[in-house]
Simulated assay, not measured.
Amino acid sequence: MTALPAAGSAVTDLALVHEALPASDVVEGAPTTAVAVLDDTGEREIGIWEMTPGVATDTEADELFVVLSGRAVVAFDDPALADLEIGPGSVVRLAEGMRTTWTVTETVRKVYIA
């Protein structure tokens, strides 16, 4: 996890440290993810999250996010909802416990509130 400097930084330029996803979550490729927590009050967390190209499954947290860069398709496995194409400017609300499959074609960076 990367910490944000106290004086602030451009979130698009913030260097993030990536880690491999658990093999059980990877469907295709070798995607990695990174997180930088910007604020954590204990009741909510605001941060930057990034995923490199590949396909992976996830169980979502209750969150709202805005995509800063990249492209992906989020497939909703449970509950079954229409696939969602996301890119810069997309605003998405996820509910805790949703099962999703992320197909990232260009590294996705988002700001999230969870």
Rank of each mutant, 00 (worst) to 15 (best):
R44Q: 13
V67S: 05
W49T: 06
W49E: 08
M51L: 14
R44C: 15
R71Y: 10
R71M: 11
S69Q: 12
P53Q: 07
G47W: 01
R71V: 15
L64S: 09
L68S: 09
R71D: 14
F65S: 00
D62M: 01
A72H: 03
A61D: 07
G47A: 13
R71G: 08
T52Q: 03
P53C: 11
S69A: 15
L64P: 03
A75D: 15
S69N: 11
A61C: 13
A72V: 05
L64W: 08
D58H: 09
G70M: 03
L64Y: 04
V67K: 03
E43V: 13
W49H: 12
V74H: 02
P53Y: 05
R44P: 05
G42V: 13
A56G: 10
G54C: 12
A72I: 11
A75Y: 06
G47H: 04
G54L: 10
F65M: 05
L68M: 15
T52K: 06
A75F: 08
G47C: 07
R71N: 13
V74E: 02
P53N: 11
G54E: 04
D62V: 01
E50H: 09
G70H: 04
E60R: 04
A75C: 14
R71T: 15
V74P: 00
D62E: 13
V73A: 09
R71Q: 14
S69G: 11
F65G: 01
E60G: 00
A61H: 02
V74K: 00
E60I: 00
A72L: 10
A61N: 08
S69H: 12
V67A: 05
T57H: 09
R71A: 12
T59Q: 04
T59K: 04
G70C: 09
W49G: 04
E60D: 11
R44E: 11
L68N: 07
E43P: 10
E43I: 14
E43G: 14
A56E: 06
A56S: 15
E50S: 12
L64D: 10
R44I: 11
I48A: 02
E43C: 12
G70A: 12
R71W: 12
G70W: 04
V67E: 03
E45L: 08
V67M: 04
A72M: 10
V73E: 07
V67D: 02
V67Y: 01
E60T: 05
F65A: 02
E45G: 06
V74D: 01
R71S: 13
L68V: 15
R44K: 13
I46M: 09
L68Q: 10
E50R: 10
T57F: 07
A75M: 12
T59R: 03
A72F: 03
E60V: 01
V55N: 03
T52G: 07
